[in-house]
């Protein structure tokens, strides 16, 4: 059996006395799409942020590509080139043009040749339909455009694993589709992805596996279709019923 891309083992996280994540065990196979569902406040964002070192955790272990992760700023800085992350609020750098936003990582972190990195950036921009905006500044773009650029910025590092933290949650409905389309294409290209979303129809369509989180515990980790048609726990059933889709 192939080594999973990421294994999370007995991860525990608390802020002071408040226990956020309890004994998280999670396996993510290469080329699979995992959708992380759960009510707000269940710890989805905290979990996804633990996976690229934006949050530390008290105990437990991450194993990436068979290598245990020994958390330190240096290790995370290296690993983040392989684990891309896209945020709800896009967070493009307002002081840089679209192209410079995308090239910052490839040029300054990975020290790649400018011509090669630029060619790749422009190719990625074309794929998301925004090639003509390479010299624009983020303030000139709509939310949906910014989010697609933010995805390109993460992809430009050639990551092996992508984290999406509610990337459509602050978008107008008509902007959501374009961003989901980008995610769908990535899934078809067999990018390994972990997606936190409230777009249930999209989740159902794209998920190879669903992880259902509540109060910081994983209640279910099941294949995608099974979760939607035949959830194992009552909590998941209630959650599905409460979502309007």
């Amino acid at each position: 059996m192939a080594t999973p891309l990421l294994q999370v083992e007995h991860l525990e996280k608390s802020y002071g006395d408040v226990h956020i994540l309890h004994d998280i065990d999670l396996t993510i196979d290469t080329g699979s799409v995992t959708v992380l569902l759960g009510p707000s406040g269940s710890g989805k964002s905290t979990l996804i942020r633990c996976l690229n070192g934006l949050e530390d955790f008290q105990s437990g272990q991450l194993v990436f590509s068979g290598q245990p992760v020994v958390p330190s700023p240096k290790v995370w800085q290296q690993l983040r080139q392989k684990i891309g992350m896209v945020f709800q609020s896009y967070d493009l750098f307002p002081n840089l043009t679209v192209l410079d936003n995308i090239l910052l990582g490839p040029l300054k972190v990975q020290h790649r040749a400018k011509a090669e990195a630029t060619a790749q950036a422009i190719k990625l921009l074309k794929e998301v339909g925004l090639a003509e905006y390479q010299d624009a500044y983020p303030r000139q773009l709509s939310g949906g455009q910014k989010q697609r650029i933010a995805i390109v910025r993460a992809l430009a590092l050639n990551p092996e694993f992508m984290l999406f933290d509610e990337v459509t949650a602050s978008l107008d409905p008509e902007m959501v589709r374009g961003v989901l389309e980008v995610l769908r294409n990535l899934a078809q290209q067999k990018m390994t992805m972990l997606v936190v979303t409230h777009e249930m129809n999209f989740a159902r369509e794209i998920a190879d596996q669903v992880v259902f989180l509540e109060n910081g515990r994983i209640l279910e980790q099941t294949p995608g279709q099974q979760f939607f048609t035949n959830p194992q726990t009552e909590r998941a059933q209630i959650f599905l019923n409460s979502m309007d889709f």
Binding site: L54, W76, Q77, M85, F93, V109
Partner: peptide, 14 residues
């Protein structure tokens, strides 16, 4: 904003 810092870290900046 703190988000800018995290976005920078997320692309591997030291």
């Amino acid at each position: 904003p703190q988000h800018q810092k995290e976005a920078g870290l997320a692309i591997g900046l030291n």
